[in-house]
Amino acid sequence: MNSWYFSHLTLIQGMLISVPLALSVQIALRSGVFSFASIGFYGVGAYGTGILTMRGWPVLPAMLLMIVVSGLVAYLMSAPLIRLRGLYLGMVTFAFDLILTVVATNGGELTGGALGLLGVPLGIGTGGLLAAALVAILAVSQLERRAVGRALVGIKASEELVMSVGVDLKSRKRTVFAISAALGALSGSLYVLTFSTVQPTSAGFTLIITTLTMAVIGGTSSWIGAVIGTVIITWLPTLAATIGEYQHLVYGVVLVLVVMYAPEGVLGALRWLWRRLAPRLRPARPPALVPSGGPPPDRGAAARAEPVPADRVKG
């Protein structure tokens, strides 16, 4: 056990770091906010925390500062963004991520240019990573319960409906956007404090693919999906030795296949199985399609009651 743990330490750490990031995409997708912005804030968190700790800041305040700043910036940014239709929001946040990559490359001494930050002091152990992942899970999972959970699912299904039942749509979407960004920043901070380095490309296109795959493969309907996806994507390369440098190719193929055949992800497949098995497990009861009480349908009466033939009314 112990030797296994140490030989797989990097993977375990990587997995724990990825959990908040996968959650950041999952909570956004679940709420109908199609945004890649949290990948950009991953970069902000990594660079920010790295730069601060290299200048002598203690770890915890540096991390917290970057998380809070990312959340606030995202909240302010979101005002014009959340008006956008799904696809446009996706592309704008994609552009935002690439702008940050360019900024990091051009940041001179502060960001270390194309080489990025090197030699950030190690500031967190596996226990700390685990704690951070658990906090992220707790925070996100709470938002899937009760009224908040229903409202967020509703936003994705029908914005008109949730507004008509009194949900403050804009504010909920903006807050989700901010939380997603804060989770991204948390993940980036954890990364830089664990591996002591970050490059401009760290938060680039490959990270978008990887994270999206994690969230989508598991299923975006729940935090459990994001966690399942993170576990799968982390351990997939170790299962097949040949994957190695082709791992992003495998992610790409997996992502396409999941979108085609199981858009609800692993979670969706499990639910489907449960629905098939559940009726056999619980006692049978009569199909209750017709509500109790009330006489049988009387089509004749309904037709007689129609004052105007339907084809005349169409105008």
Partner: peptide, 22 residues
């Protein structure tokens, strides 16, 4: 459908890019 197409496109893009990188 629009969003799934987008996600599938991101996944598909990963294939040629990875081949070229490797």
């Amino acid at each position: 459908a629009e969003l799934l197409t987008l996600i599938a496109g991101v996944g598909a893009a990963g294939i040629p890019v990875t081949l070229a990188v490797a």
